[in-house]
């Protein structure tokens, strides 16, 4: 029994180190966001003596932060919907229909996601400017969807493959066309896969910086990550407000992950689904 306890102590230690390492920045930002300006550049005190919400107020009163939040939210939601719709339409044939060269197609899809964003940002910028879409939600929706789609297709294809093949076959024999078998049987059973892929797409869009920075110009379409970077004023860096903003954008991520972490893990490892 003694030998069984040793690894668990070791595991706990490693876990503690990893947690400290990953959570410290968030803790630091949280502390910073509630410290008055005067305490910000001093240490000690480590913990705020007079916690204040003044930075959060400033965020929404002195900056168009509500608009920026709305932009981020809408772009992420629309990207998620677009990626799921297109991804599902690609994943179903790749998973179930007799198509030659499926493996090649999936390989190419994966290949697309290997391009560093910085390689595609220039050409995309030219295209978006030519289409007159600069500084619109469309610019971000299109670019985010193209980038989120490969992962979505992979997650959904693997998920659909894990659904028992006999369900699809039974639906066909019962009188469904391939499309009906998809919409009436496979789609309702795909909620876990759609959730996993959807959360991943949402998080990608929500935190994406490079495209958002390049394709937006004003608060009409600027998203939160870009807005935070552009906070620094003319004469000073407003650490308190930056910290408050980063906490505000982290909250939805936290909620999503806590709600759906089971699906995210099973989606990435391509799913424990029982038929």
């Amino acid at each position: 029994m003694k030998s069984a306890r040793l690894p668990s102590v070791g595991a706990a230690l490693i876990l503690a180190v990893v947690l400290a390492w990953t959570l410290f920045p968030i803790l630091w930002q949280t502390i910073t966001s509630v410290k008055p300006d005067t305490d910000l550049v001093q240490l000690p005190p480590l913990l705020p003596l007079h916690p204040t919400l003044v930075h959060y107020e400033a965020l929404f009163q002195q900056h168009p932060f509500s608009r920026v939040l709305l932009n981020s939210f809408m772009v992420a939601v629309l990207t998620t919907l677009a990626a799921l719709t297109l991804g599902m339409l690609a994943a179903f044939p790749l998973a179930r229909l007799p198509i030659r060269g499926k493996t090649l197609v999936l390989g190419l899809v994966l290949g697309c996601s290997m391009f560093p964003a910085i390689v595609t940002v220039g050409p995309l910028f030219i295209i978006i400017r030519a289409l007159g879409l600069r500084d619109t939600w469309w610019a971000l929706l299109i670019s985010h969807t193209t980038f989120a789609l490969p992962l979505t297709i992979w997650v959904l294809t693997n998920f659909l493959r894990e659904l028992p093949e006999d369900l699809y076959r039974a639906a066909r024999v019962d009188g469904c066309s391939p499309w009906q078998a998809f919409t009436r049987i496979l789609l309702p059973l795909s909620r876990p896969g759609l959730t996993a892929a959807g959360v991943l797409a949402f998080l990608f869009s929500w935190t994406e910086f490079l495209y958002a920075f390049t394709f937006t110009a004003t608060e009409a379409s600027r998203t939160v990550p870009v807005a935070i970077v552009l906070f620094p004023g003319l004469h000073e860096i407003r650490w308190g407000e930056i910290a408050a903003a980063s906490i505000v954008v982290t909250l939805p991520v936290l909620v999503l992950v806590l709600l759906f972490h089971r699906y995210i893990v099973s989606g990435l490892t391509a799913g424990a689904v029982k038929g």
Binding site: D166, R169, A170, D174, G275
Partner: peptide
């Protein structure tokens, strides 16, 4: 117009 019973039954779980 054929019907089939599968080894796994393939009942629609939802």
């Amino acid at each position: 117009d054929v019907a089939m019973v599968f080894q796994s039954y393939a009942l629609y779980p939802h």
